[in-house]
Amino acid sequence: MADDKSNAAAYWKANVRLITGCLIVWALVSYGFAILLRPLLSGIPIGGTDLGFWFAQQGSILTFIGIIFFYAWRMNKLDAQFGLGE
């Protein structure tokens, strides 16, 4: 039982760490590159405008898709690793 508990706690810890990492990337591309850091990226031209604009209208959406699939793939591996899957 104690083993089960520490196993579960380790699983939850790994999950929270993974979520944190994913959310950092999520915030960086949207609130970061696309909004707050846009002036810093204005020197990088892309098709008649700058990289920040591209992130706001294209790049962030593409990154979001990547994050969700990455998280699903990693979590399914974690489920199996800790024996907590269905």
Binding site: L23, W26, F64, I67, I68, A72
Partner: peptide
Amino acid sequence: TGGFVILALL
């Protein structure tokens, strides 16, 4: 679109 990240992760 970003809301789906919250939905899927949290």
